[in-house]
């Protein structure tokens, strides 16, 4: 392996579960030392992709190399990767300390060294006080930190994180982001899955948008957002009867289609630049149409999907569809 060997190179990965093509021909080229985000809704195939790359699931067809090791050479791949699954990636019945010692022993540390390494990790992750408690008593944020600590008893070359912040409160989420940034700064390549555009935006150097087992877009978060146009402008009026006039004015000012929503006082325009939004709002005020509130934000995952696929993420055949935060 030389410095130009990519962290991950996948060609035509396919995995069926019954009739469903969970992963439907995925190619990936992930350079080393970056955070690569797989972005998509529940059931898009993100988890199956990383489970294949971590040798937990055998692809039906296609091939992949992790740091030059073919997936068929399982032990070679496993010696350079580490996986933090979305659920239960440590043993809940054991204490935090026992879990880490167990994993250290499995990676060949002698007994005393395993204990020392475990204590070092627990201290670094702020879990010293919880070291002797069973993991099932941990809070969500502590749980996620022990999960990640368990993945780096030996610092992996490539770390897979499956939805590392789903279900976490904002503070815990920020801590997980800090840990991920520190790991990448130290040279680990991170492949994470997420349903959140802002997470991909904050963390990922490159993003692949996944839908129905396919990569439907690839690029930096800036490129993805540019492909959608900028954010959407939502305006809520004081009086519902002003809406037709406001719609006409905004459409003219923004030179764009403006949509009404089910809210009788709301109007939505997608792909609006901030300065254009400000000007249009000024025009509304000038003609005397009162607004109760307005918002201009980065495109939501929904909007990215809408722009990329022409349909929203909540397709009728996707029963596991989850909430998509703006």
């Amino acid at each position: 392996m030389d410095d130009t060997t990519p962290a991950i190179k996948a060609r035509g990965l396919v995995k069926h579960y019954g009739e469903t093509r969970a992963v439907d021909g995925v190619d990936l080229d992930i350079p080393r030392g970056i955070v690569f985000g797989l972005l998509g809704p529940n059931g898009a195939g993100k988890t199956t992709i990383i489970r294949m790359l971590a040798t937990l699931v055998t692809p039906d067809s296609g091939s992949a190399e992790v740091l030059g090791h073919d997936l068929r050479d399982g032990d070679a791949v496993r010696s350079v990767v580490s996986l933090t699954g979305q659920f239960a990636s440590v043993d809940e019945d054991l204490t935090g300390s026992e879990n880490l010692i167990l994993l250290c022993r499995l990676r060949g540390f002698a007994r005393a060294r395993a204990r020392e390494r475990s204590a070092q990790l627990l201290a670094a992750f702020g879990l010293e006080e919880a070291a002797a408690r069973q993991v099932k008593t941990y809070s969500g944020g502590m749980r996620r930190r022990i999960d990640i600590a368990a993945s780096i008893v030996v610092t992996p070359e490539v770390l897979f994180l499956d939805e590392p912040t789903t279900g976490l409160d904002p503070r815990s989420r920020n801590q997980v982001w800090s840990i991920i940034r520190a790991l990448v700064a130290a040279g680990t390549t991170v492949l994470l899955t997420t349903q959140y555009l802002d997470e991909a935006d904050q963390l990922a150097d490159q993003i692949a948008v996944i839908e129905h087992g396919k990569v439907i877009a690839l690029g930096t978060s800036g490129e993805l957002k540019a492909s959608v146009g900028s954010g959407s402008l939502t305006v809520r009026l004081v009086n519902a009867e002003d809406r037709p006039a406001a719609l006409e004015l905004l459409a003219r000012e923004l030179d764009i289609d403006v949509e009404t929503s089910t809210d009788p006082v709301a109007l939505v325009a997608r792909g609006v630049q901030p300065d254009a939004a400000a000007a249009a709002l000024g025009e509304l005020a000038r003609v005397g149409i009162a607004t109760s509130d307005f918002a201009h934000g980065q495109p939501s995952l929904d909007e990215v999907f809408l722009a990329l696929t022409g349909r929203p993420t909540s397709s009728s055949d996707d029963h596991s569809h989850a909430e998509v935060p703006a």
């Binding site: 390494r117 944020g141 502590m142 610092t155 520190a182």
Partner: peptide, 19 residues
């Protein structure tokens, strides 16, 4: 208490990069 104890400093960086 434990949550606030997470500090990303040099010691932390050393810990997470065990080669």
């Amino acid at each position: 208490a434990p949550i606030s104890a997470l500090v990303i400093d040099d010691a932390f960086r050393d810990t997470i990069t065990l080669r």
